[in-house]
Design a protein around this nucleic acid. Structure first.
Lengths: 121, 121
DNA sequence: TCATCATATGAATAACTGTTCATATATACA
DNA sequence: TGTATATATGAACAGTTATTCATATGATGA
């Protein structure tokens, strides 16, 4: 090319499809909700947290039991539980010296069941 | 403390609950499946990819239309489509100069519907 | 066949995230 | 009340990731 003028990337009105774009934009969920969904999936998108959640599907557990179950340090588990707590996905109760965590929301099971179905084809 | 000896973190057999841990370990899904689930959620855990997926719920779209819809560069969209492609979540077809992307799997809708329900309380 | 243009890709950068290590907190129970 | 201990937290580090910029690729359609 003779000049610094760069090539168009899908010049408007020719190969782009403005009417489709507009129609899709109208029907899509609000930006804010999409951000929340991404944020939720981000929390689910870590194998440690997935393992914690799946463990809690089976039983409430104290921190050190989770650590033992996953063969990880108490600190690492505690940090991840904080993430789950901030996302309001787990709740906890004290019993003696231990603190027992459990899942806070039944939707989590539904979401994970769908994901399991997908993963197992 | 007088020595480098650190305190126990939930000494076995006392405050830990080995029978519960073992029982949960038995019932949990295989490690490999949990990794796949985490990997799937990781792909969903980005707002750009969530927006692309939700756009594709409404209609198949070419790359430049997605870029316009999301107000992002063609390159950024292309990079993210590659991630979705590698996860086998989208498929594509050529039509003239454009390449139209669409969702490859109906499970995605199910998973997202559950996530939307959760996010909207 | 050749120039064009939609799309793909590679390298670089900046921001983010998970674990570790060290230590603080706080509750139980002696 | 004081000590032991289950849990929480902060800082640091390493690994990962999303975007940008520049450029390659490759099919179209003239």
């Amino acid at each position: 090319m003779t000049d610094k003028e760069k090539m168009p990337v899908c010049a408007d009105g020719e190969h782009s499809h403005p009417e489709i774009v507009e129609s899709v934009a109208d029907r899509m969920a609000d930006e804010e909700i999409l951000m929340d969904v991404a944020e939720l999936f981000k929390v689910f998108g870590d194998s440690t947290r997935v393992r914690i959640i799946c463990a809690l599907f089976e039983s409430e557990l104290c921190v050190c039991d989770i650590a033992e179950l996953l063969n990880m340090t108490q600190s690492a588990i505690s940090h991840q539980l904080r993430v789950l707590k901030q996302a309001r996905l787990v709740k906890y109760r004290r019993d003696g010296k231990s603190i027992f965590y459990s899942l806070a929301d039944s939707h989590i099971r539904t979401i994970f069941n769908s994901a399991f179905e997908h993963v197992m084809e």
